[in-house]
Design a protein around this nucleic acid. Structure first.
Lengths: 253, 253
DNA sequence: CGGTAAGTTGAAAAATCTCAATCACGGTGG
DNA sequence: CCACCGTGATTGAGATTTTTCAACTTACCG
């Protein structure tokens, strides 16, 4: 996998913003852990986010085997998460973006099971997990939301299984594009035109395809007038037909 | 999907065992929600399981769209869980067995997102979810375990993604067989010889393969002396080589 | 004991992968 | 400022894997 940046096994040079952080002021409030909490509750949750952390493009936020003690709501930037088999096979499990939360897969074992790599300069909140557990015993609304977020991740994964198990290349790619589009829309960005932060190889790995197949399929979708792709820039030209190609169901999120 | 038994949309004739149930007496204690809880705690959790429910082979425990209000630890019997796209595509997401817990994917939306169908006569515990949340605010160990179980499901799903995204037919099937074997072992059954409760079509659907491919691949693995399959009965003949075929990593659970 | 669902096997078709050549872009150093 | 280098992307052609279609066998249930 030469596409990936050097491992950089040093303890990650990520900068740390020392100032206190407050979920109530966060623009991503409605997507994140505190969705649905009252303003009064939010004030009392002041200490939930211990700090923030910045990660440079290509650097890991965490790696499989690192000790788990916090989850990381993303403030800024795209990531990829990936699992690696003992024999070196890799599978990208998702491309989380601001408002998504990283690290839940680690709860079950006290150590992370996957890598989270920043695809661009990024910033995350650091939420110590023991603190989150303590607070969620006190704030029922937070407990609910935590369970919802965990469950949502399971549902998302089932969507990916559906994609990998039942779809053809073109359908997979169309579904992938629509999913990105939708998530950009939720975050207030253009859903019609955006930048692909990941390479063709990374897209292919996620979708269970080779990079050449991704490239060819993009070209075909462009010839068919569904999308316009030029390097990393993608524009949806015919949403209705793109949806047809993706097939009903399985929005991936 | 003619392989599946008739939908049976009636409200499921499952019998209900009215007597109180106690996790402390349960043989599956070490796999289930109460793993790691002290005996003293277990006594105080008496009311967690409201009742038990029996499901006949081919019947659903729940279906996508049903209202969610409980999770279901399996006492007895195999299930399949599956998601269905609007256009009718189906994807089996797993084959849960005793000690596994059904229903967590529904937390995020108040309604189930998938079907759980009994592959043989089965029995589950009924754990009302609001009660589970209440108790987990009181019992830290239960809260931990709930989070662990949720997280374990995410990790499992990542393993399936790895399988679907990076493996060839034979590797998928070998991994599948080894996973079943391992889970039988954990439950005290023979890990070397067991009955496949699911059809070739269901195996194929789960593994992203057609039933003919499953059949052919079983035959090949038999010719190669890795396994012996005769209808639903499977015996592992050469564990070491089967593991080689499955490749290191990704035990699926 | 018959009917139906499940499983096996073969041959041809289709999808995807592999290998290889070429092109585009961005960053870097002269 | 521009040439150069390396990574990423595109495209083609042939190989491989899996699917599809079809025939046939086997097992199971009533």
């Amino acid at each position: 996998m030469s596409a990936l940046p050097a491992p950089a096994s040093k303890a990650s040079p990520a900068a740390v913003t020392p100032h206190a952080v407050n979920c109530g002021d966060c623009g991503l409030r409605d997507l994140c852990l505190v969705e649905g909490l009252s303003t009064a509750d939010l004030d009392r949750l002041a200490g939930m986010v211990s700090t923030r952390r910045r990660i440079k493009r290509g650097e890991p936020l965490f790696r499989a085997g690192d000790r788990f003690d916090a989850v990381y709501p993303i403030r800024l930037g795209f990531f990829k998460t990936r699992v690696t088999a003992d024999d070196g096979r890799e599978q990208i499990t998702g491309f989380p973006m601001p408002g998504d939360i990283l690290g839940f897969e680690a709860i079950s074992s006290t150590h992370f099971q996957s890598d989270a790599i920043a695809l661009e300069d990024a910033e995350v909140c650091v939420v110590p997990f023991d603190r989150l557990e303590t607070l969620s015993r006190e704030f029922t609304a937070l407990q609910h939301q935590l369970h919802r977020v965990l469950s949502r991740e399971i549902v998302r994964d089932h969507g990916v299984m559906m994609l990998l198990g039942t779809m053809r290349a073109e359908q997979r790619l169309a579904t992938f594009v629509l999913n990105l589009s939708q998530r950009f829309a939720q975050r207030g960005f253009s859903s019609r035109e955006f930048i692909l932060r990941m390479t063709r190889e990374e897209i292919g790995n996620f979708l269970g395809l080779k990079l050449e197949t991704v490239s060819r399929t993009f070209s075909k979708m462009q010839d068919d007038g569904l999308i316009a792709v030029e390097q990393k820039r993608l524009r949806i030209e015919d949403l209705a037909r793109l949806r047809e190609v993706a097939g009903a169901g399985c929005s991936l999120e």
